[in-house]
Structure formats: structure tokens, C-alpha cells
Amino acid sequence: MIPAAFDYVRPESVGEAVGALAGAEAAGSEAKVLAGGQSLLPLLRMRLAFPDLVVDVGRIPGLRGVRDDGDALLIGAMTTHHEVVADPLVRRHAGLLAAATATVADPAVRHLGTLGGSLAHADPAADLPAVALALDAELTAVGPRGRRTVPAREFFTDYLTTALEPGELLTGIRVPKYDGWGFRYEKFSRTAQAWALVGVAAAVRCAGGRIAEARIGLTSMGPTPVRAAAVEAALAGAQAAEEPVAEAASAAAEGTRPAADLSGSAAYRAHLARVLTRRAVLAAAGPA
């Protein structure tokens, strides 16, 4: 399978990249951003995407790496999955992100695929959008009208669709530090290297044997990642023990719209969401 022909540019700065995207738009042609290519290349090969121009932002200095920003981490959009998993700051302050990223695909895909690419692609079966949502991350984008910040809650708008406007480049992700929180990413898939049938990203803060606060994001439970709001509410103040957690987790599928496909029915996904939420919360609340 060979992609349709396209023009290719490799800008060296964010400004140049945004300029290239704007130029294409003005000319009425379609441009696509290329990050690691691990989602875009399959689309190009299957000719589900056939842009006139590919803007390779993979080598823009400054879009890659993790920085300490006081009460949060700033992660460049082009930071690869491999780098996220290994990064000491991420492991220390946002362990949920490191743990979930380690379950993405396989080592070779993680060497090229990027955090920004995964979030911009917004596949509902992808693991990292649900994590960004659970952690209340903020996404920074730069476009022809300048820079803006979008909370994860407003970023994922529909199936493979985000709040990014045409011509906007996602540049970074701001993840608050979750020091002292427990976390767990529970992912259910049928084979080793498969996508999540359902995934549950849980961050839990405990105090004196009780759950003070819980944040839970669900993968593959609808066209966008969703927060298990009913579970979070039920967990606030609950005892960090099997029964109350199971009781709270029974609300995990509330308000979700899971798809039915070859991998599983909607009812099966709802069942998985409840079971995995219970497991994830118990693990996150358990002794570290």
C-alpha cells in the first residue's frame, strides 16, 4: 500500500510550521501535521487521508522533552512515548501517565509515536486521551491567531475530533503534579499488543484509610474519552476497601456510550468498565 503523492516540508520552528499550515489553507489545499507518523502513516497508506502537504514537525527544537514548571510538568507535544515512559519527572509526578504510556503498542511504535500525536489524533480506543482527561491536563496550541490553552475536558469533542482548529499546532501538555496520589491504568485487550477494549485510568488520593479524592478517565467507552463522574462522586470520602469501592465502581458505565464492534458489545464494555474501575481504584488506593 503506497500513499498518494504529497508535498513535504520540515519546518524548523513553530512559527514556520504554522505558516506552512496557513499557506496551505489560503491556497485551498489540505495540509496534515506529521508527528511520529504511527497513526498518520497507516491512514496515508490506506488512503483514508490524502493531504496535498505534509508538515513534519518531528524535529522542531523545543517541542520535545519534559520541564518542571512548579506545580505542574510541561511536556512537549513531540515527546515520544518511549521518552515519556523513561522520564524521571513524569515517573515521579505523573506516574499514571508513565504507566499508561508503557501499555501503548510496542517498543518500536513507542520510539516514534508521540504524546501530542496521540492526543491530537483522539482515537477513543487510545490510552493517553483518557489519562490526560483524568489528570485534568491542559493542552497548548499555537495557530495563526496566536497561542491558547484548552483544558482536556474541552479538548476531545468527538470521534477523532478535537478542539484544535485547522492550522493549529498542538505544542505542549501541562500536567499538574500528582505527588502523594496513588494511580493505576487498567487496560483490557485480547492480545498482547492490542488496543484497549476498555481502559480505566485512575488517580486516587487517600487520607486516613479513606479516599479523599478520585479522578477516573475511561478509554473506549464512547466516541471521546470520558470521566467516570458518578464513580468519582461516590468515592469521595469512601473507605478505601473492597466493598465500598465495588459499590462506587458499579456506576462506571453511567452516562457512557460505548460502541459495539467485533471486539465486544456495548453491554460487555459496560461490564468491563465496572470491573476495571473497581480494580484500578483498589490498586490506586492500595499501599504504593
Partner: peptide, 19 residues
């Protein structure tokens, strides 16, 4: 199709030559 590109394994069917 796995090869090594500058010290990391990648799937060469999922990377452009220009990359």
C-alpha cells in the same frame, strides 16, 4: 520490517524515507 534508526527500533513500513 523492524530496523534500527539511530539507536532505536522502528517499523520501517511505518516511517517515511524523508523522516
Amino acid at each position: 520490517c523492524t530496523v534500527d534508526v539511530s539507536g532505536a527500533s522502528v517499523k520501517s513500513c511505518s516511517m517515511l524515507a524523508v523522516q
